[in-house]
Each structure stands twice: as structure tokens, then as C-alpha cells.
Computed example of a mutant assay.
Amino acid sequence: MGTRTADLLAAAGVGIGDEVIVPSYGTTDVVEAVRAVGAAPVFADIDAWSYCLAPASVAEAIGERTAAIVPLDVFGHPADVTALQALAGARPLPVIPHVGQRPADSAEALQRRRHHAAYLDGRLTGVLTPRTAPGVEHRYHSYVVRVPGNGRPDRDAFARALRARGVRCSVPVTTPMHRTPAYARDVRDLSLPETERAAEQCLALPVDAGMTRRELRHVVAACNALGGLLPYDVAA
């Protein structure tokens, strides 16, 4: 996994002794690609709404040994590669988007997912719906909402209640990479507040291209029946 990204890192001259800035929120593929070339991953925080690497956090993580930045498109929202490239400054610092294993979308499937996402956006009231940065085309590989309240306990209770009502849902990222046993001891003082908040609050709802309008209405009814939006500020 992550072989193509590892090949691109190696081609850019990244290797033993180097550091590569990566997201902690996402798949293990990115970290595996960095380790495959002998480099060390350095975790940066994510944007509160795109869930992709936050350029401001990446800027703080850049050090003398930084050799590359590997962003990840998350849930179908593309990373802000242009903003990350602007961080390089005077010395070359390649930005190498992670190449995942997801098959290419057909135009019809992509259009239907976006149509379904727009339907949910306009009708869900019990959760915080996704936001897309201006000018960005979201591919909605997953339709990820936030469950406001007291973090993981409320999100998990909400998920159980939805499943009891027949709605398929899942927690997209249960544990950020910097909190896994492989890294937690080495980065115990690392603060990635948006990453940890997302891991505690996010829930993926079904938005498959093949869903019917009746199925979408059922998702909306089940979510909205669990209560209205609580006072909440995602950036607090």
C-alpha cells in the first residue's frame, strides 16, 4: 500500500534521515509510504472543514530535515496543494499528493453522489453537514457529518441510534495516527486539536450513487428525529 507515493518520494530524493510532513487524520497508507523510503513522518493538523492538511499547521511543522509534504484528499475533498506549495519558500520542498488505490469514478456515479449530498445538505438538521471550500469540487467518496455535543460519547450514541433505525453509518477515522501505539509515545506532547476533534465527532452517512430518493429520505428522517442542532462552534 502507498507504493506509488513511495516511488514518487524516492524519485524526489527523499530517504533516510529526512522528515516528511503528513496528516495524522486519514489512512495508514501515507505513513507507510514515508517509512518505505526510510524517512520519518511528521504529523500536522487538518483544516476543520476539508479535513485535509492545514497549511498553517504544516508551516509550523517545517524544520531543517523536512524533505517533502504529502497531503491527502480526504473523503473526496481535494487538498489545497497550491497553498502547500507556497510554503516552500527559498528552498525546494516538493509537495507530493498521496496516490490512493480508489478506482476512478464514472461521471454518472460522481454526479449522483453530488446530487445526493446536496439533498442531504438541504434537509439534515441534527448534524453539521460538510462544507466545501470555494471553487473546489467535492467527490463525496464519503458523506461525513459532525455530531455536535460532547464528542465521542455523543457521536457513538448517535451512530447506534441510527443503526437501530436501519441507517448504515460508520466512524471514518477512529484513532488518528499520532495517537496509535506506534507513535503516541514519541509525540505525546503533540497537539493536533482539529484532528482529535474530527476523530471524536465525525460520522459517515451513506451517499452511494445507487441510493434511491426513498433511502435518502429515510436517512434524513432518522437523523432529524434524534434532535436538532446543539449550540456549537467547530472552530472553538
Rank of each mutant, 00 (worst) to 15 (best):
R4N: 05
L8E: 13
L9Y: 01
L9P: 05
A12N: 10
I16T: 15
G17I: 09
D18C: 11
D18N: 11
I21G: 01
G26A: 06
G26S: 11
V30Y: 06
E32S: 12
V42Q: 00
A48N: 09
C52D: 01
C52H: 02
L53C: 02
L53T: 00
P55H: 01
V58K: 02
T66Y: 02
A68S: 11
F75H: 09
H77S: 11
Q85K: 15
A86Q: 12
L87G: 05
R91K: 15
L93W: 10
H98N: 10
H98Q: 08
V99M: 05
G100N: 11
Q101D: 13
P103V: 14
A104K: 12
E108L: 13
A109T: 14
A109M: 04
Q111W: 13
R113S: 05
H115V: 02
H116G: 02
A117Y: 06
Y119S: 06
L120A: 03
D121K: 11
T125P: 05
L128R: 14
L128A: 09
T129A: 09
P130K: 04
G135W: 13
R139A: 14
Y140F: 15
H141M: 11
S142R: 11
Y143A: 05
R152Y: 11
A157T: 13
A159E: 07
L162R: 02
R168P: 00
S170L: 14
V171G: 03
V171Q: 07
P176Y: 04
M177D: 11
H178T: 04
H178I: 08
R179D: 12
A182D: 13
A182G: 07
A182N: 08
A182P: 03
Y183C: 03
Y183G: 01
A184C: 06
V187M: 08
P193I: 11
P193F: 08
E196R: 06
A199G: 09
E200T: 06
Q201N: 10
C202D: 14
P206F: 04
P206V: 04
V207R: 00
M211S: 05
R213W: 09
R214F: 07
R217P: 01
V220F: 12
L229Y: 13
A235E: 15
